[in-house]
Design a protein around this nucleic acid. Structure first.
Lengths: 226, 226
DNA sequence: CACCAAATACTCCTTGACGAGTACCACACG
DNA sequence: CGTGTGGTACTCGTCAAGGAGTATTTGGTG
């Protein structure tokens, strides 16, 4: 019965997989991860790292091996993974792959508050986002094909592929939405414009009226409650 | 110069937009947000709420209006938004709409560590994920169209539309990836299988060799450094 | 050879998120 | 008329994340 919140920080999982290769001291783990560009997909900073390692040791998933003092440098403690640790990492990673989890995205929040912005500003923002997305997609595409040409097997670029797929979908959605707002296709856009029309004081009733209806929103299965 | 980390918690933005409608006390804000299902897109719990409100007051974006004690209940402090607050919320929301930010997704982390799992387990996990995604997409689609039939304008369901678009893209990607692993299309899958082949002790050299190459990964513009 | 920048290998401390708990009241139910 | 359940309106304590700092060593440059 490992406390469930123990599976919250992916950095811990990354540490486990690193130690699976060979015993290392925390800083070396960080170097390895950075060297393989894992910090692009997993939040990594020294502040958290040592805390995570400590917690893994407390949970017996890793074990201190030796504490060496090379020269007069601060001492380095080398850790190795335990059998329990190997099993935990396998379980955890499997779960991470197999079950989708609810993520709270910044842009999702933005969209849910969009009516708080005048339609024109919203539209301008969406256009700007679309442009930025185009640039980003092109950049990453370039970097990925460059890496492939250098001989990096596709197996090690899956994260980038995935994120690219999501970005493309987002770009698609943003463009469609912008078009729909502009052309008046968007149901509700008429009231929206009226709130911000000169003289048209925002009648709060419109918003309040939607309260009950919104309550019927998706209440899809929480993955956190599993 | 508002400290940049002040723009980290979207709940604060949600509070600002709520107070734009009318002055409220924190608990009422929470009720409003829950009533409109914002908690599906914005992390909301009472523990954080009061901290956020306090910080907003300290930054002069909202101001305490009155502290009423109805009956012998705990006192309720009503807050209203200030002019600075209105401007800040407009700025913040615009920025959120206009500029994509790097998100650290669980599944992204999983994919980046995928080689730590035997290919068969990885494949099984991906298949299971695909199934879950199909179910989730169907559920939310149902809920959204139901809400639409009840008269909810599309303007208030944009978040769901967006998340659905992302989920569809993810499903697409997962299915393609599963197929490619199975059919051996995936470059690197051969070494991958060999690491886990019976007797084939994991030669660490393969992994280490990719280190340098991986370093050439996307170093696309950090949105945090802007 | 003096000096400065960068790398090494961490530690510390401040925010801030979150869950659990609390005290009070209203209303229904037997 | 007691009791219990659910809503109201918060408070508190814990724990983790993350940035900034620190002390030492290595390597390069004028």
């Amino acid at each position: 019965m490992p406390p469930r919140h123990a599976r919250s920080n992916p950095l811990a999982l990354a540490v486990l997989t690193s130690l699976l290769e060979k015993p290392m001291h925390p800083y070396e783990v960080a170097q390895t991860l950075r060297g393989r560009a894992k910090h692009e997909s997993i939040r990594l900073n020294y502040g958290s790292l040592y805390g995570v390692v400590e917690s893994l040791e407390k949970r017996q998933l890793i074990r201190a091996r030796e504490t060496v003092r090379a020269g007069r440098r601060p001492e380095r403690t080398t850790y190795e993974i335990t059998d329990t640790g190997t099993r935990e990492m396998s379980d955890w990673l499997s779960e991470l792959v197999a079950t989708p989890t609810k993520e709270y995205l910044q842009f999702e929040a933005a969209l849910s508050l969009l009516p708080a912005l005048p339609p024109d500003e919203a539209l301008a923002g969406l256009r700007q986002r679309a442009e930025s997305l185009v640039v980003e997609i092109a950049l990453v595409d370039g970097a990925v094909t460059a890496a492939r040409l250098r001989g990096l097997p596709r197996l090690f670029a899956l994260e980038s592929e995935y994120v690219q797929a999501l970005r493309r979908a987002e770009l698609d959605y943003v463009e469609r939405l912008a078009k729909d707002i502009e052309s008046g296709q968007l149901t509700g856009a008429d009231q929206w414009r009226s709130w911000y029309a000169p003289g048209g004081g925002r009648s709060e009733i419109d918003l309040v009226a939607t309260d009950e209806i919104c309550a019927a929103h998706p209440s899809y299965p929480q993955t956190t409650t599993s």
